[in-house]
Amino acid sequence: MTSVPLEETYIENRVFVQPNDTNNNGTAHGGNVVKWMDEAGAMSAMRFARQTVVTARIDGVDFHRPIPRGDTALIESYVYRAGTTSVTVHIRVFSEDPLSGERQLTTESHFIYVAIGAADDPVPVPDLDVDSERARELRDAAVDDDTDRSRDE
């Protein structure tokens, strides 16, 4: 099986936070944020696995600050670890002011996806190629975040 460069799995998605996306405080509802994270994470995982994937686990979600209505939710995701049939995706969300472009980290997590075949059974995934400097930087940032999360538990 071939390997896939980590950079090929990098996805950025944006959602303009509308009134229907918000809670009583006028900020993005946490459930919507997790949904947006899951969608971007699945896109990264599918780009890597070249297969359909399903969400197997969410390793907690850290909400650092809210995303106000009218801001853009910028969702960043990429695969940083590959198993036999599963991949782990690092996902971060930023609140982005649509006028200035100013960003603040709001949410982060690690989602695990399993690649499935036509019979909905797990199928093998490729190896992850982290040979470039950018790939190593991204992987190291995700691993550092994963380590920090473990210490907090």
Rank of each mutant, 00 (worst) to 15 (best):
R50K: 13
S100I: 06
Y113D: 04
D97Y: 10
D59R: 05
R65C: 05
G60Q: 03
G117D: 09
S44T: 02
G83L: 04
S86Y: 13
G70F: 01
D127W: 13
E108W: 03
V123M: 04
T52L: 09
G70I: 09
S109H: 07
A82E: 04
R65H: 08
L105H: 06
V125R: 08
A115G: 09
G31C: 14
V54S: 08
E137A: 15
E96L: 14
R92L: 02
R47M: 09
V87Y: 07
R65N: 05
G117C: 02
G101V: 05
E133S: 13
D59N: 08
G117N: 02
D97L: 11
V93T: 05
M43D: 02
V87F: 12
R103G: 05
D127I: 10
V53L: 01
T85L: 07
A118N: 09
T72R: 11
A141K: 15
Q51F: 04
S132V: 06
D97V: 05
A135H: 09
G83D: 03
A82F: 03
H110L: 08
P98Q: 10
V123K: 08
A142T: 12
P122T: 05
W36T: 02
H64S: 09
G70H: 09
A119H: 06
A119R: 06
T85S: 14
L74R: 03
K35P: 01
V114Q: 05
V125N: 07
V33D: 03
V125L: 13
H64F: 12
R57D: 00
A82K: 02
S77L: 00
E137G: 14
T106G: 07
A73D: 01
P126A: 12
A119M: 03
F94R: 06
I91Q: 01
V87P: 08
V33L: 13
V61T: 10
E102Y: 14
V123D: 06
R139V: 10
E137H: 14
R134F: 13
H110Q: 10
T107P: 04
T84R: 15
D131L: 07
A118S: 12
A118M: 06
L138E: 12
